[in-house]
C-alpha cells in the first residue's frame, strides 16, 4: 500500500505527478531532454542504462517498464536486454555498452565510485564527453526516480501485457 493517499489507478510515477502537479513540468521536461535525445547516446542505450540502474536499485516497476522500452529499440537482440535485466553486466556485452553500464553501475553506488580507469576505458572506446555526461546523469536520475517510487511505497497494478503496451507507447511517442 502506498504511504500516502495517491490514485492507485494511475500507473507508475504518473500517480505521484498527479498527486503533486507542481513537480510534473520539470520532471517531464527532464525526462524528455535526457531520455529522448538522439545526440550521442541512442534512445536504446539510454533506456538500457535506466533499466540496469533500476535493477541495481531493486525497483521492480521501473526495471520492467524501462526494460520493455529498451526492448522496443533492440528488436533484433532480445537476449541483450534480458542479459542486462537479469544479470550483472558481463564481458559478453559489446565493449561500448559494457563501458557505459560499468560507469552507471559505479554511479549507482555513489558518485565518487566512478574511477579514472572506467573513464579511460570509455574514452578508448570512442565514447565522447557528452555521452559520459549523459550516462552519469541518466544513472543519477534513476537513483532519484527509483527512490521516489519505492520510498512512497507505490505498488503496481501492471501485468506483463500492460507493461508491454505502455512501453510501446513510450518508445513511439516519448514521455
Amino acid at each position: 500500500m502506498a504511504h500516502i493517499n495517491v490514485d492507485t489507478n494511475i500507473p507508475g510515477m504518473r500517480s505521484l505527478l498527479a498527486y503533486r502537479p507542481i513537480i510534473a513540468p520539470p520532471l517531464l521536461a527532464l525526462m524528455k531532454v535526457v531520455m529522448r535525445s538522439n545526440e550521442g547516446l541512442s534512445l536504446g542505450e539510454r533506456e538500457l542504462i535506466a533499466t540496469y540502474v533500476s535493477f541495481l536499485n531493486d525497483c521492480t516497476s521501473c526495471h520492467i517498464i524501462h526494460g520493455e522500452v529498451a526492448q522496443c529499440f533492440y528488436k533484433d537482440a532480445p537476449e541483450l536486454v534480458s542479459q542486462i535485466k537479469e544479470n550483472e553486466i558481463s564481458n559478453q556485452l559489446p565493449p561500448r555498452l559494457h563501458a557505459l553500464l560499468s560507469i552507471a553501475e559505479s554511479v549507482q553506488k555513489g558518485g565518487k565510485h566512478v574511477s579514472q580507469a572506467q573513464i579511460n576505458i570509455a574514452k578508448a572506446n570512442n565514447i565522447t564527453d557528452l555521452e559520459i555526461h549523459d550516462s552519469v546523469l541518466i544513472a543519477s536520475m534513476f537513483c532519484f526516480f527509483n527512490r521516489y517510487i519505492d520510498g512512497l511505497g507505490l505498488t503496481s497494478n501492471d501485468t506483463l501485457e500492460t507493461y508491454k503496451e505502455r512501453a510501446k507507447n513510450i518508445a513511439e511517442n516519448g514521455y
Binding site: 504511504h3 505521484l16 503533486r20 558518485g111 566512478v114 543519477s140 527512490r147 521516489y148 520510498g151
Partner: peptide, 22 residues
C-alpha cells in the same frame, strides 16, 4: 512526507551527478 521523500531522492541524483563527473 511526499516532499521529504522527493527532496531526499532528488539529492541522491544531484549528488551523484556532481561527484560522478568529478
Amino acid at each position: 512526507i511526499h516532499d521529504t521523500v522527493l527532496i531526499s531522492a532528488a539529492f541522491c541524483m544531484f549528488n551523484r551527478y556532481v561527484d560522478g563527473l568529478g
